[in-house]
């Protein structure tokens, strides 16, 4: 019943490799941590440059356009727009390399 050779659907033959349609609670937690990490890096870079009296166009644009983790709606945190999906939303874990890319904005109205 337990152990590496237990009888589960993926192991009992055939190709069954499913991705659940929603994130687990722990995945959501780690995803929020990653979002916050990116926010921290942007603020670190910004404050370090500000101390020298400099600024960067890329940083300014990011701060203006991108919402921080706290400003984001749960809908935008955990799902993304997809025109092929019913009701136009799919879980963010379906995005390729989703733990290593920033995907925060979605088209308005969707």
């Amino acid at each position: 019943m337990f152990g590496p050779f237990r009888l589960t659907n993926p192991l009992s033959g055939g190709l069954l490799w499913k991705v659940p349609w929603r994130l687990s609670r722990q995945q959501k937690y780690r995803h929020r941590e990653r979002l916050r990490g990116v926010d921290n890096i942007v603020s670190t870079v910004d404050s370090a440059l500000a101390r020298l009296g400099q600024s960067l166009k890329k940083v300014e644009a990011w701060k203006k356009e991108m919402p921080t983790e706290q400003e984001m709606l749960p809908k935008d945190k955990y799902t993304v727009f997809d025109r092929k999906v019913k009701r136009y939303r799919k879980g963010i874990h379906k995005v390729p390399k989703w733990t290593r890319v920033s995907q925060r904005l979605n088209p308005p109205g969707f």
């Binding site: 990653r34 990490g37 990116v38 890096i41 942007v42 670190t44 870079v45 370090a48 440059l49 960067l56 890329k58 940083v59 990011w62 290593r100 890319v101 920033s102």
Partner: peptide
């Protein structure tokens, strides 16, 4: 700083 912005998801910066 610009280089860090490109790789911000992969690194830790202090």
């Amino acid at each position: 700083a610009g280089q860090i912005m490109r790789i911000k998801e992969l690194v830790d910066v202090k």
